[in-house]
Design a protein around this nucleic acid. Structure first.
Length: 489
RNA sequence: GGCGACGUAGCCAAGUGGCAAGGCGGCGGUCUGCAAAACCGCUAUUCACCGGUUCGAAUCCGGUCGUCGCCUCCA
């Protein structure tokens, strides 16, 4: 039994989907710039939720929109002298690359706002016909006063919103909180035909349209960042339920806490953005996923380089475990750890607690491997949870060695050094010295040279190789199967 | 001003009535020629502070202080 915290009720509820397939909608990005690590956090979380539901035997249909037309896109495109569609396309693709790099599975449907104008118009017309919306000056507004429960998601009333006071004067609106469904086009802006004249969809309406079109009138999970609760999701509920007359529009509203940098939220308006690409240049997807998953998804998370490094070391331990092999002793049973893992995930996707079970399991596996127990089944369970549920790759980050020259230099000076005391060995090494190749080849050669030196008990020179390699970012590990190396910066 | 969240070890973080998970770091040990990796042991008598309820509270109630979010484009 899975329990989820629903923003609407404010409580932890038993999760029971409306049908055989879990219908899941998560708000996507507005592609006018590179995606940032706040996006990474949110989409990693919903990716894990989706994976877990599937792991628990649910079919999941996952829809995510792309808001490819809005004020920011228009503004940015104009500034850069490009079209809104070219700009949106560029950053949509960049976003998709980022998600792939983070091992976030693509949605089943990924509709663009501009591709759904027909459905959007249909809904607005319906809302106008029912008296929930009214045209004014070529735009169409939603009439919040006709939705008595407006404010139920964000737990506030119209009166309390008015008290907040940061509301601009009425313009064409009947009520200050009325929001735009259809925006009249200004000269030169991209626009579509409508009964109210040339214009384009407002922000909130596309999500209602897509959810209704791709998932139906009542969906199971609607997700997004906490910053979307008001006004975006509040408005989605109002529009959707007013249009269809079906309640609830979403059975469960899930919201992730926001990523902070330093002492404030990272956001577009404060400009303290760190892009996903920037982070992935320094840290692996597993590192980032572990960093995000080691706290509960509803809490705010403070980004820090130290935090990522800590997560990275943890990730390495898991990767190390995944690569182990046991013997043919007694078979290790890890079902108790698996049970704990599932109990944690069942409890509102408590990935932090689930991870503690995974680390415990890793320790048990390492221990068993050390004592030559059979760890095949254990490893299978371990990987299933780490990869299929948490979406970790468990692959060591093989960073490309850009420049082989430091390794070549190291090899050359080594030969010269050895020649002073042992010309025979120097000749032998010289013979096997790679004429060219990538850094890896030279590293392998250096490891080979070190093995010969160790065999000859020339530990000082051998250790020097290890030390120099470490300075270049290469760690050596001597295992019974030989020496393995890792490159990390 | 309104609404909401949070304050647990050096750092990150789980735990919402019954002896304080896990990760990172640190210290000691096993293994190793020495390391690395892995493993073992230790690392919070105490959960912002004050008061209350209870046989029993990090967990419930009241208050104080502090941090953050939303109320405006945002994942």
């Amino acid at each position: 039994m899975i329990r989820v915290t629903d923003t609407l009720s404010g409580k932890k509820e038993t999760f029971t989907p409306g049908g055989d397939t879990v219908k899941m909608y998560v708000c996507g990005v507005t592609p006018y710039d590179e995606s940032h690590i706040g996006h990474a956090m949110s989409y990693i979380i919903f990716d894990v939720i989706r994976r877990y539901l599937r792991y628990r035997g649910h079919q999941v249909k996952y829809v995510q929109n792309v808001t490819d037309i809005d004020d920011k896109i228009i503004e940015r495109a104009a500034r850069l002298g490009t079209t809104t569609s070219a700009l949106a396309e560029k950053f949509t693709r960049s976003y998709q690359e980022d998600m792939a790099a983070l091992n976030v599975e693509p949605p089943d449907f990924n509709p663009r706002a501009t591709g759904e104008v027909a459905k959007i118009r249909e809904i607005i017309e319906g809302l106008v016909a029912k008296g929930y919306a009214y045209p004014a000056g070529g735009s169409v507004y939603f009439r919040v006063r006709n939705s008595p429960d407006y404010g139920k998601l964000s737990h506030r009333t119209l009166d309390s919103m008015m008290a907040g006071a940061r509301i601009e004067p009425g313009e064409e609106k009947e009520h200050p909180m009325d929001f735009v469904l259809w925006k009249a086009a200004r000269p030169g802006e991209p626009s579509w035909d409508s009964p109210w004249g040339q214009g384009r969809p407002g922000w909130h309406i596309e999500c209602s349209a897509m959810a209704l079109k791709y998932l139906g009138e009542s969906i199971d999970i609607h997700g997004g960042g906490q910053d979307l609760i008001f006004p975006h999701h509040e408005n989605e509920i109002a529009q959707s339920e007013s249009f269809t007359g079906v309640k609830p529009f979403a059975r469960y509203w899930l919201h992730n806490g926001l990523l902070q940098v330093g002492d404030s939220k990272m956001s577009k308006s404060t400009g303290n953005l760190i892009s996903i690409k920037e982070i992935l240049a320094r840290h692996s997807a597993d590192t980032l996923r572990l960093f995000v998953l080691s706290s509960t998804y509803r809490s705010p998370l403070t980004f820090s380089e130290e935090g990522l490094e800590a997560a990275g070391r943890g990730a390495e331990r898991l990767i190390q475990t995944a690569g182990r092999s046991g013997g043919n002793g007694k078979s290790l049973d890890v079902l108790a750890y698996r049970k704990q893992f599932l109990e944690a995930m069942d409890d509102d996707f408590n990935s932090a607690r689930a991870l503690s079970s995974l680390f415990d399991m890793a320790r048990a596996i390492n221990q068993a491997a050390d004592s030559k127990q059979d760890i095949d089944d254990a490893l299978k369970t371990f990987k299933e949870l780490a990869q299929n549920v948490l979406g970790l790759t468990l692959k060591a980050t093989e960073k490309q060695i850009g420049d082989a020259s430091p390794f070549i230099a190291l090899g050359n000076s080594l030969i010269a050094e050895i020649r002073e005391t042992n010309s025979g060995l120097a000749d032998e090494l010289q013979k096997s010295y790679p004429a060219d190749g990538d850094g890896g080849q030279y590293i392998n050669w250096l490891i080979c040279a070190r093995a010969k030196l160790r065999a000859a008990k020339q530990f000082q020179t051998a250790d020097e190789i290890r030390k120099k390699l470490l300075e270049l970012g290469v760690t050596l590990e001597d295992t019974p199967q030989g020496t393995v190396w890792k490159y990390r910066k």
